[in-house]
Amino acid sequence: MSELVARTGRHQQRYKDGYRLIAGCIPYKFRYSEENGSADSENNIEVLMINSTSGPGLLFPKGGWENDETVEEAAKREAIEEAGVRGDLMHFLGDYEFKSKTLQDEFSPEGLCKAAMYALLVKEELDCWPEQSLRQRRWLTVPEAIGCCRHSWMRKALEEGFSKWHADGMIKTMK
């Protein structure tokens, strides 16, 4: 297996209408136990969050969508690079706009970003991944994740995208 290396730099970064295009995901898995009740209960779903490298709070894996990949490939790449997980993209949760103080550049001087977010069903947790020296990962219930989410746009993706998708019965129970 080839060694995993995180991409760096912005020479391949996509921009559209003054927005830096971002791809990310909300990694999730099911946990089963007798005391948790039915398999489709909110308590039986855990989402994976990682620490921010620029301050307190937790976030979901996300990063720049580059010219040589689809948005889905970028979302899966970020999950591997930042959180060390592989899985299947199950649902597009929506596009979320935000303003970044740290991602200002000549193509987006105001730091405007648009993130395409997906639900990623985790199939594998890697022991080694590119940003493991910078990141810790934490499995949380959805209510716990809402409580410690660093960015309001990520909280919105979790509450309005992921949770609505789940409440509508779209998440398939996979044993």
Results as ranks from 00 to 15, higher is better:
S2E: 03
L4A: 06
L4F: 09
L4G: 04
L4T: 10
V5N: 09
A6S: 13
A6N: 03
R7Y: 03
R7G: 03
T8F: 06
T8A: 07
G9Q: 08
Q12L: 15
Y15A: 11
Y15S: 11
Y15F: 14
K16G: 05
D17F: 04
G18L: 09
Y19G: 09
Y19C: 10
Y19K: 12
L21K: 10
A23V: 08
A23K: 06
A23E: 08
C25F: 04
C25H: 05
C25Y: 08
I26E: 02
I26A: 03
K29V: 07
R31G: 01
R31Q: 03
E34C: 04
E34T: 00
E34W: 03
E35V: 10
G37S: 01
G37D: 00
S38A: 10
S38F: 00
D40K: 06
D40A: 02
S41N: 15
N43V: 01
I45N: 09
I45F: 12
E46S: 13
E46L: 15
V47S: 10
I50M: 15
I50K: 09
I50D: 08
S54L: 04
S54N: 10
G55R: 02
P56T: 04
L58A: 01
L59K: 05
L59H: 00
F60A: 06
F60N: 01
P61I: 06
P61A: 03
G64R: 08
E66Q: 00
E69Y: 00
E69T: 03
E69V: 05
V71R: 10
V71E: 08
E73K: 09
E73D: 10
E78Q: 11
E78N: 07
A79K: 05
A79C: 08
E82Y: 04
E82D: 09
V85H: 05
G87Q: 08
G87S: 07
G87Y: 11
G87C: 10
G87A: 12
D88P: 01
M90N: 12
D95S: 11
D105F: 13
E106M: 12
E110R: 15
L112E: 14
M117S: 01
L121T: 08
L121P: 00
E124M: 02
E125C: 15
L126T: 11
W129D: 11
E131W: 08
S133R: 09
L134P: 00
R135H: 14
Q136V: 12
Q136I: 11
R138T: 13
R138Y: 13
W139V: 07
V142P: 05
P143F: 15
A145Q: 02
G147R: 10
G147H: 08
C149W: 05
C149V: 01
H151S: 13
W153M: 09
M154E: 12
M154R: 03
A157G: 05
S163D: 11
K164W: 04
K164T: 15
K164F: 07
W165A: 13
W165S: 09
A167R: 14
D168C: 01
G169Y: 00
I171M: 06
I171K: 00
K175W: 05
